[in-house]
Design a protein around this nucleic acid. Structure first.
Ligand SMILES: [Mn+2]
Ligand SMILES: [Mn+2]
Ligand SMILES: [Mn+2]
Ligand SMILES: [Mn+2]
Lengths: 224, 224
DNA sequence: ACCTCAATTTAGGCTGGCCTAAATTTTACC
DNA sequence: GGTAAAATTTAGGCCAGCCTAAATTGAGGT
């Protein structure tokens, strides 16, 4: 891992996330993800592409993908981020809605030693508080087949794998509704027009209703 | 606390330390302490003095002192630094020679919430692993009367209060010799020429010999 | 008093990371 | 297939923090 700035690490993480679907990371989407002007992204992508070794492959007007070197840094940063989130919850008593922002800064500040100590203290964990897999020390990462709950039709059964962690309000709502990673559910009903989903949650009598925003933030594995 | 950069926080901490003796912080000493060129210090001091509110009082060619606003930031950063050092030792099993550098980075990255959680977990501690007092949440700090062991003459008895934490090799040597904060000692002998000190350490039979480098790194309270 | 020199400041420059405004290119639709 | 809108890049700038080299200054020794 050549030493890279917090900014570069965040760019690489964002490119990693936006290219999970096999497509290229577009300038505008990166700009939105990073809270930065599109022109700034163009400049940074050029820099990353001409780094030695190159961290991204940049094709003008088409977007960017990670090189192996760039992916290593992205995954190393992701590992720190997720370890830190779990650490904050388990050791410092944070709520799962409070950890993302803190981890977003700390991920750039901890040493390899601290990363290792945290991992050991937590028992080399495989998942963060939101159900996201933590890259292993060798930076391998099992890729999941989870899809947004929004894609599940009525009648389908499944299990919550992970939830999006960026919006604290979403997370607070999810825990209020008992929609946590690992929980099984059945989609009782979908409504047209407003696109609601009625869920029966395992071990609970009443159904819960969720809007599209929540349905997009919940990632599930569906039963065959 | 207006939001200040890591660099500014480190400058203010350095000025705080260099002005503990009531004198002004000189450009060159700041440059040495911060690992930066003297010209850079001059530039930064001007900036800090013209900040709104001013963080330092800067007199051309004379040096700088902290304003109350600057001192608050220095003490807040010092509190984080020392809390983090103790946290790393107690919770993550760091050695006391390994914590300073890590804390030097983390002190700029943790939130007020994290600071509070760490303090609570540690039981609102008053001292860091090197015996340095931790500023209270209201940033008050008892000022100590400790002096370098180097100043103690033969025959004097005293107690180790704190040790300088910047050099890991010094710290490893100190723990090897059993010279830890809280330990009582008697100065058995001082030598002229090479300026050694022979100490008898409480609860130990043999005397230990230390050179000037160590004697300057050990801060003690001497018996009346 | 003067001179020397160490300390400090000034001058000019560089890089990283951001910005806005103005091109330019692609895409999408009629 | 032409054109309007959206996406992207280019151009030009700004600020924080650092640097080196050159100029300045003040303090101490004689
Ligand atoms: Mn981040
Ligand atoms: Mn997460
Ligand atoms: Mn620091
Ligand atoms: Mn310390």
């Amino acid at each position: 891992m050549p030493d890279t700035s917090p900014s570069v690490q965040d760019y690489l993480k964002a490119i990693y996330r936006l290219t999970r679907d096999g497509r290229q990371a577009a300038t505008n989407r990166l700009a939105a993800a990073l809270g930065v002007a599109p022109a700034s992204v163009t400049g940074m992508l050029k820099r990353l592409a001409s780094e030695q070794p190159p961290l991204v492959v940049y094709r003008r007007r088409r977007g960017a993908t990670l090189t192996p070197a760039g992916e290593r840094i992205a995954l190393a940063t992701l590992r720190r981020h997720r370890l830190l989130e779990l650490f904050l919850v388990r050791v410092l008593g944070y709520g799962w809605d409070e950890v993302h922002e803190e981890a977003e800064r700390l991920e750039h500040a901890i040493s390899a030693r601290m990363e290792a100590r945290i991992a050991r203290l937590l028992g080399e964990p495989a998942f963060d508080p939101h159900g996201h897999p933590i890259p292993a020390p060798d930076l391998t990462l099992p890729l999941s087949r989870a899809v947004p709950l929004a894609q599940a039709a009525a009648g389908v059964r499944g299990r919550i794998v992970s939830v999006s962690d960026a919006d604290p309000a979403v997370l607070r709502r999810l825990s209020a509704l008992g929609l946590l990673p690992g929980v099984g559910f059945t989609v009782v009903q979908r409504t047209a027009g407003d696109n609601l989903a009625y869920l029966r949650v395992e071990g609970s009598a009443e159904a819960v209703v969720i809007g599209p925003a929540l349905a997009e933030a919940i990632f599930v594995e569906l039963d065959t």
